[in-house]
Amino acid sequence: MARNSAIPPESFEEILAWLDPDREVAATMYVQLRHDLAKIFKWRGCSDAEELTDEVFDRVAKKVHQVRPTYEGDPRYYFRAVANNLVKENLKKVKTRVSLDDAELAEPIATKDEEDHRLDMQECLKSCLPKLSRENRKLIVAYYAKEKRAKIDNRTELAQQLGIPVETLRVKVHRIRLSLQQCIERCLELKANRK
């Protein structure tokens, strides 16, 4: 579980000013950086990515007054270095990595609660779909029309029809899917709060 990070307000302001002179841009960068660092911890197999992300910001907050005046370059490299140290510390603490063969990994199982969630999700999906433009809706349907081996040919054909490289198509669909996912997440949160 994520613990509460208590960064003193003046250090928080200095971190923001370090990220970018424009406070709005800095706030966006701050949120993005937290999200990205949590992902990195997760990729490195750290079990509590959120807690470690808090720890990165706590450590930077303690040093920011000293480091910032002389630091040159993108401050995100500094955060990255602090995160890297934490990954190493975390590995030492854990001492042994569990072999993949021994790891007991939970597959998502459908319980009764999960079935309720699934129904909520379908309702949310239905309410979010009309927010997509007709063109984007058609594109996402065409993109996911085929599975497994057939999908590669299908997507190559689709990209040709649109006159764009497959890479661009994948990014385009990723952006549409992301907006749909964010809408569904907001809707699910609202539903959960109402219960």
């Binding site: 998502p108 999906l125 065409a142 085929k146």
Partner: peptide
Amino acid sequence: LRITESIRDWAAMEA
């Protein structure tokens, strides 16, 4: 994961 699955399933069904 379930959100992605539901989007994919819906799109495949529409297709």
